[in-house]
Simulated scan of single mutants.
Amino acid sequence: MNQEEVKYYRMFIAVKNTLENNTSIWSGNPKFAETKTNFDSEVKAISLLDKEASLNTKGQTRDKNQIRSAVEQKTLMLSGALTAHAALTQNETLKEKLITSKSGLERLKETELVTYAGIMADTIVPLQQTFTSDYGVTESEVEDFQTTLDEYAPLVGVTRQRQAKINASKKTLRGHVDEANRLLREIIDPLLLRYKYINAEFYNEYQQSRTIVD
């Protein structure tokens, strides 16, 4: 990222944190929630594209091994919850796909690990509320798992389906910055106006997070 994009990205993260810290206030507004999800996708795409652009061959093998180890650890943690869920819901198809041992994950080839972890992510994300309330798997844990997986996948030549969904391969990093700004300017900013009068503390905190810091 260039200096201007870095400033915007820092602002995006501040906004994202503010909104997530106040979810209970705006979660009842469907269009707000929908736009927040789209905004998060743009911010994540910016991070992924910047990481990809920053990769170099020096130390790449070491870094890849380190990231694989992190993927295996986080995958194993989620496999436990998925296994329990499969057993409780009598989902034999899912149960047969799951790996619940470190050695089992270590035996997987690089592309096989990415594929397996991707299946886990695609299973958990739509049921996040259930996994949080029933199995203690927080949204931040799943997001951290996805971020690590998305960091590992390009190193082994695999294009994550999740990246395709947000068109990361078709849009420039600047394009994601512009789209994130548009979502804030045209939708979230106007939606925040009502909170100026019904929840001034939240409104002021949001306005502070929207400040570009040099």
Score class of each variant (00 low, 15 high):
173 L>F: 05
136 G>D: 01
156 V>N: 06
181 N>A: 09
155 L>P: 00
201 E>Y: 09
170 K>L: 13
133 S>D: 09
125 V>P: 00
157 G>V: 07
182 R>C: 01
185 R>N: 07
177 V>N: 09
157 G>T: 09
203 Y>D: 06
114 V>F: 14
129 Q>R: 06
193 L>E: 15
149 L>K: 04
122 D>M: 05
124 I>N: 01
118 G>H: 05
132 T>V: 05
194 R>F: 09
174 R>M: 07
200 A>F: 12
133 S>H: 11
122 D>A: 11
132 T>M: 06
138 T>S: 15
161 Q>G: 14
139 E>R: 14
148 T>Q: 10
179 E>P: 00
159 T>S: 07
165 K>G: 08
128 Q>R: 10
196 K>D: 12
197 Y>E: 08
137 V>W: 05
188 I>D: 04
193 L>H: 12
167 N>R: 14
197 Y>C: 01
179 E>F: 10
173 L>Y: 05
125 V>S: 01
153 A>S: 15
159 T>D: 06
115 T>V: 06
182 R>Y: 09
157 G>F: 13
172 T>R: 05
149 L>V: 01
140 S>H: 05
127 L>W: 10
126 P>T: 05
129 Q>L: 04
128 Q>H: 13
142 V>N: 04
137 V>Y: 08
142 V>F: 06
186 E>W: 13
173 L>N: 04
127 L>Q: 15
182 R>T: 03
169 S>W: 13
171 K>P: 00
161 Q>D: 14
151 E>G: 00
148 T>I: 10
134 D>W: 03
166 I>R: 15
139 E>M: 04
153 A>K: 09
156 V>I: 07
136 G>Y: 04
153 A>R: 07
123 T>E: 08
204 N>Q: 11
120 M>H: 10
202 F>V: 10
125 V>Q: 03
175 G>R: 07
158 V>G: 07
123 T>K: 12
154 P>M: 05
146 Q>E: 06
183 L>D: 02
124 I>C: 00
129 Q>Y: 11
178 D>K: 11
182 R>Q: 08
154 P>Q: 04
162 R>Q: 00
149 L>T: 00
168 A>S: 09
166 I>T: 14
165 K>Q: 14
137 V>S: 03
116 Y>R: 08
148 T>N: 03
148 T>M: 07
154 P>R: 05
171 K>Y: 14
176 H>Y: 12
